[in-house]
Computed example of a mutant assay.
Amino acid sequence: MPLSEHEQRLLEQIERALYAEDPKFASTVRGKGLGKPTRRRRLQGAAIFVVGLVLLVVGVAVRQLWLGNLPVLSIVGFLAMLGGAVLAVTSIGSGGQSAEGKSSTGKERGGFTNRMEERFRRRFEQE
């Protein structure tokens, strides 16, 4: 379920505050490899998927490569296809600006916390 614009703005504010408070922890939590979209990773994923598809078809077609009644090469091909698809899909990012590139001052940090607390209080008062 996609986030509403308001929720996305809140999430971005929380991310900026986290980077401002502890950038080392924030970069550790965010991770280095999967979060950043790269064309190279998408191409690698697509190539692995195609190789897996070829292995799957060849494994089914060539009966001598079977181990008993089990098409081993086809299973390896399927796993390669799955891995390639996961690699390609996880490389697709949101396209938004990274919170690392945005700077915040100490005043904004305190203001952010105060605003969030005030919003939280208002929600409970409305209910």
Results as ranks from 00 to 15, higher is better:
V62F: 07
S74N: 05
R123Q: 14
A26L: 01
Q13P: 02
G95A: 01
S74H: 08
R16W: 11
G96F: 07
E118N: 11
G52I: 01
L34Y: 09
Q44P: 01
L70N: 09
G110K: 10
F25T: 13
E7D: 14
A80Y: 03
L87A: 12
P37R: 03
V50N: 10
K36L: 12
M116I: 12
Q13R: 13
R41I: 05
Q8C: 08
W66A: 04
L53H: 00
M81P: 00
R42M: 14
A61E: 10
R40Y: 05
K24S: 05
G111C: 01
V58F: 04
R42G: 07
P2M: 05
L56A: 13
F124M: 11
L18Y: 08
R119Y: 04
F124N: 04
I75C: 06
A88E: 01
S98R: 05
A99P: 04
E118S: 14
L70H: 10
F49I: 00
L10V: 09
G68W: 05
E117W: 10
E15T: 00
S74T: 09
S98Y: 04
T90A: 05
G101W: 01
A17E: 11
R122S: 10
K107E: 13
M1S: 11
L18V: 05
R30L: 03
T38A: 06
P37A: 07
L34E: 12
R123L: 12
D22I: 05
R115G: 03
S91W: 04
E118P: 02
R123Y: 09
G93S: 15
E15W: 05
G96R: 15
E7M: 10
R122N: 09
R30Q: 14
T28N: 09
V29T: 00
V60N: 09
I14L: 15
T28A: 13
R16M: 08
K32C: 00
V60R: 14
R123W: 06
A80I: 03
S91G: 15
V58M: 01
E125N: 07
Q64V: 08
A20H: 15
E125V: 10
N69W: 02
L79F: 14
G111F: 01
L53Y: 08
G111N: 13
A46L: 15
E118H: 11
G77W: 04
R9K: 10
G35T: 06
L56H: 11
L67G: 08
L82K: 07
I48W: 02
S27N: 09
A20S: 09
G33W: 12
D22V: 05
G33A: 09
K24Q: 11
V29L: 15
Q126V: 08
M1V: 01
V58T: 10
L43H: 06
L65T: 12
L53I: 03
M1E: 07
T90V: 12
L87M: 12
Q13Y: 01
E118C: 06
A47Q: 06
V54W: 07
A46P: 04
G68F: 02
A80W: 10
T105K: 00
L82D: 09
T105S: 15
K24C: 00
K32E: 11
P71Q: 06
P23W: 03
S94Y: 03
R42K: 13
K32N: 04
L56S: 13
F49K: 02
S98E: 03
S91V: 06
R41Q: 11
T90F: 10
M116F: 14
Q13L: 13
T38K: 02
T113G: 10
I48G: 03
S4G: 05
